[in-house]
Design a protein around this nucleic acid. Structure first.
Lengths: 366, 366
DNA sequence: CTGAAAGCGCTTACAG
DNA sequence: CTGAAAGCGCTTACAG
């Protein structure tokens, strides 16, 4: 009705460009809103909203619905997620906390979680906590501000106090790939079976002195893989002396260090199960450095497969684990389970021994 | 004033638990709101808000301010980020799109961007687009719904049409580690210099036949590294024939394939610059497979350093690049630059040749 | 069968 | 110096 007033700004022209003109088409790109769509379609905002969310309690003439959808298309309307979330009290966002983006094992978990989140029309926010506890604090703080509907906790930087804090704030959480005492919400892989599979492969090749480069003492995965090693050894009547085990972390450097220690011991093993593929890279490196030939003098097998494993020298035999499925399953469980209900799940199936060049029968020499 | 009414629900007791009781302390964990804090402190909500954001236009008695802060602490109040964002029209969130979480080069970029976002009290949302274009579409769609204040685009899945779409929606974007024709907002590393540094290292060792395992033809980084290789070669009076170049992608498998091709050619090089560290892993693998000893028969150097490089056999000589700084700088530029202003920045300094075991003088045999 | 209204939890110009 | 009010863009019980 009222035509755009030509605002003449005489003397007091300032540098600020925020003169409120009545719509300047090219500029400003003011976001299209529900009201814009409603106006164009000649209906109320609420009708547009209901059409878009397919409200079953909405009986509308097909013709009107068409008009609404046409307006949505014409204006390329995209509902504002923040406004929607404020109203519905659902952020449609899940958080995932990992130790470090550089760890390729977590890459697969992230990938799985991301796909599952997308499949639910949600968004995944992944943060790393690294070495610095202050980064973890930041993430927990942010998360407390209503930005996520739930939080996946992978990696070792979670303690009981943090879980209590999340409980207090009413934010559902789920431990991924690890457990914690008194925390009855977790989803993990069958680490024990993965380790067992690797050991049985070595035993099948004829090995008897099979060492274990284990993960960190306080890591839940490490304990379960160690148990798998021990159980499989005993089942075959083989000894599991303390000297056959050396503790490492899940990095190449750690694996190298641990392997050096192992190779320096009196009675050298003919084979070794490394608890983690990244550490196993270090094992190969340490063996080469010590002049120990793999697989002739030392067979090496590791838990978790990676594209990288195929391209190492020698190519690394691994146990493939469903890491991506673990991430996806974690989102599904988090999204579909009541916040106070326990979740205790071992992701099933899909363990597979990927035989490459790093394992072979022991040399006849012994 | 009115005491909690004891609601006796006689006959029509249903299963639903949402009987509106006047505060049930233990249960429900209703989020603390601004009003709760205001009520406890005996002031208006607006005062609390201003105290918390340190509004300079607020003159308040020190005593009152104390009371407010005390209430905030006592209730452990955390402002709702969604409500705040809706009002201020700032999501305090930046997006980052990468091709693949499994690529360790991007891990460093993410890490840098994450730290920078945290430093600005913002949140980073990282999504991967992988092979599937539909995942990219999902992310772009989500981003169009007001969830981010700006978007970092790393990786090759961006085309001009997507940028136009973002422009239309008024979402500031910035290309990271790549450029695109007619897209004047990017931040990159000094790829040319990085490649040059590597080549000069090889030349310094006495090499003359220096091949190049290049990146993908359409990758901007690949072109710049190739130019660096060529320029450094010519500056030393060395030839850069077409047969000295072989195209690869930035994966170990691709690097292995390309290197096999290179080694099969008539006149074998004594050294090779691999455009990317991941591809160089494949180069080592292919060399070993072909019985070509590194570095005795072939020196190998790659762009980008990784912890992994130190633990390969032989340990890989690399050019360390400030990837983390690239990610951090990208966030800073995105946050501090007007959406329509051009950004064309080469992250400066910090290139360093990390000499390990994969490079040595050429064998005297030639 | 459709519209008007209230409200999610904030921030911020505006009164008093 | 502090409070009341409007409004960000949605959704959803409630009227008519």
């Amino acid at each position: 009705m009222t035509p755009p007033t030509e605002t003449k700004t005489p003397a007091r022209a300032t540098t600020t460009a925020t003169t409120k003109t009545t719509k300047t088409p090219a500029q400003a790109t003011k976001a299209v809103t529900l009201l814009d769509v409603a106006t164009r379609a000649g209906v109320d905002r609420s009708v547009v909203s209901r059409v878009l969310r397919d409200d079953p309690r909405l009986n509308i003439r097909e013709e009107t619905r068409e008009r609404v959808l046409e307006a949505v298309r014409a204006l390329d309307y995209r509902p504002n997620a923040l406004a929607r979330s404020l109203r519905t009290r659902r952020a449609d966002t899940y958080g995932l906390l990992i130790p470090d983006f550089g760890n390729p094992v977590y890459a697969s978990i992230i990938q799985g979680a991301e796909s599952a989140a997308i499949a639910r029309d949600c968004v995944l926010m992944t943060g790393s906590v690294g070495a610095g506890a202050e980064q973890a604090a930041h993430h927990l703080d942010v998360i407390g501000r209503g930005r996520v509907d739930g939080l996946l906790l992978a990696g070792d930087h979670t303690d009981r106090a943090q879980l209590d804090e999340l409980d207090r704030r009413g934010i559902p959480w789920l431990l991924v790939n690890r457990r914690l005492p008194r925390a009855r919400r977790w989803v993990v892989l069958d680490d024990e079976e993965a380790a067992g599979l690797a050991v049985r492969h070595l035993i099948g090749l004829g090995h008897e002195r099979i060492a274990h480069v284990a993960g960190p003492r306080d890591a839940d995965t490490a304990r379960r893989r160690m148990r798998g090693w021990r159980t499989a050894m005993r089942a075959a009547g083989l000894a599991t002396p303390a000297r056959a085990v050396v503790v490492s972390d899940y990095t190449p450097e750690g694996g190298a260090r641990a392997t050096r220690e192992l190779l320096a011991r009196a009675e050298r093993p003919t084979a070794v199960l490394v608890a983690n593929v990244a550490a196993a890279i270090g094992t190969l490196s340490a063996a080469a450095e010590a002049g120990v030939r793999v697989p002739e003098e030392l067979s090496v097998v590791a838990v978790h497969d990676l594209p990288l494993a195929a391209v190492l020298r020698p190519a690394l035999t691994t146990v493939r684990t469903p890491l991506e499925r673990l991430g996806a399953r974690a989102i599904e469980l988090l999204a579909s389970t009541a916040p106070d209900a326990p979740i205790e799940e071992v992701v099933d199936g899909e363990l597979e021994l990927v035989e490459r060049a790093s394992t072979a029968p022991p040399a006849a020499s012994s």
